[in-house]
Design a protein around this nucleic acid. Structure first.
Lengths: 133, 133
DNA sequence: CCGGATCCGGGTTGATACTG
DNA sequence: CAGTATCAACCCGGATCCGG
């Protein structure tokens, strides 16, 4: 448990800087946000998440879920039925975060093309991938 | 320039998922946000940033600045003076982002202790680091 | 003062196989 | 169904040296 493979987040030791990084580090994981979004509608099962996120591995799903649970963003409920059944649900705090995340989404939506164009222009200028000749 | 060390961002190929990840990937870099914050007040010089962020290396500062510029979030202005002088400034779009980021900060501030406690509780429960005995 | 280039370690992710 | 364990690969980030 010391050779780097225990968590999914980045939040190393730089949270001291500013609270912005603190929250970003918490959701900076590759899948955290998607899980938060997927579970926003209500309780959802492990397999449901796995099939709904498309591209995530069992390992990453478990790991990310663990961290989310650790931070008090999701609750884990085990139903001791014959075929095991575990449901994950967002906590109120997580719902607040999800709400805030949507504002970021708005920004992304609004400026998506702007950024894409800026990037294309920059690449055309600095990355001689295809010049006119 | 081919063995992985060309950029600072994460934005690999998973931006297709949702716009949330798209924006998060863009600022998920370890220093992006801090630079955005530091430059929010107005034009700022390279060295100013370097000394103001505390802990960032020249390399990372340059790299992050490049990506920010590439995405159209900052502008780079070179003053051909005797000692070179380069100033960076946020674009309007970046200012919007910065504004949105502050909402996230609010969330972080409000729930900082909650998360910390949740984490402590979880660790105490699942990580036998120090039991009562 | 500003920045590029290379070397190199460490953390995070992914694939796969195994278990209750 | 829900997870865990191991192995390997990849990318990010830091240190340092060199150039304008």
């Amino acid at each position: 448990m010391s050779q780097g493979n225990t968590g999914v987040t980045v939040q190393a030791v730089n949270a001291h800087a500013c609270p912005v990084r603190e929250v970003l580090d918490r959701v900076a994981g590759k899948w955290s946000v998607q899980i938060l979004v997927a579970a926003a509608h209500g309780p959802i099962r492990f397999t449901e998440l796995e099939r709904g996120i498309e591209g995530i591995s069992r390992r990453m799903l478990t790991l990310t879920l663990r961290n989310l649970e650790r931070d008090g963003l999701v609750t884990r409920t085990v139903h001791p039925t014959v075929p095991p059944k575990v449901e994950y649900e967002l906590t109120p705090v997580a719902h607040e975060l999800h709400d805030t995340l949507q504002r970021l989404t708005d920004w992304a939506e609004r400026n998506r093309v702007y950024v894409a164009e800026a990037r294309a222009a920059y690449d055309a200028e600095h990355r001689p991938e295809s010049l006119d000749a």
